[in-house]
């Protein structure tokens, strides 16, 4: 039994874990898959007499989870100003509401 560990940055959540496992477990020769979305890492145990490790990477690539590939994210503004939709949608209250303060649990400090 051989083992390979692959870094899959696109696998940042558990719905990706399901997709990755599904892609790998259908390969002939794969015995077990440990996919961790927290570490973005897949550990595959497989029978090297039946499966070439490159086929594992290929299966991941065709499922959209190529090892080392990350999401292409649009760039974001560095800071926010008061024109952001958050401020347009919700009327923010900047003064402290005493009732909120009393109910917030601060009393537990004492």
């Amino acid at each position: 039994m051989d083992k390979t560990v692959l870094h899959v940055p696109k696998m940042y959540a558990d719905h990706h874990v399901k997709a990755v496992r599904e892609a790998l477990l259908q390969l002939d020769g794969v015995e077990d898959v440990m996919a961790s979305s927290a570490f973005k890492r897949v550990t595959v145990s497989y029978d090297s007499t039946r499966l070439n490790p490159s086929a594992i990477e290929e299966a991941l690539r065709s499922a959209g989870y190529g090892p080392g590939e990350d999401w292409e994210l649009p760039s974001l503004p560095e800071g926010k100003d008061d024109k952001s939709p958050w401020f347009q949608l919700i009327q923010r209250v900047t003064e402290t509401n005493m009732l909120d303060l009393q109910m917030s649990g601060d009393f537990r400090k004492y």
Partner: peptide
Amino acid sequence: LGEVDDLK
């Protein structure tokens, strides 16, 4: 329960 990833 279990590991916590970025989406969690």
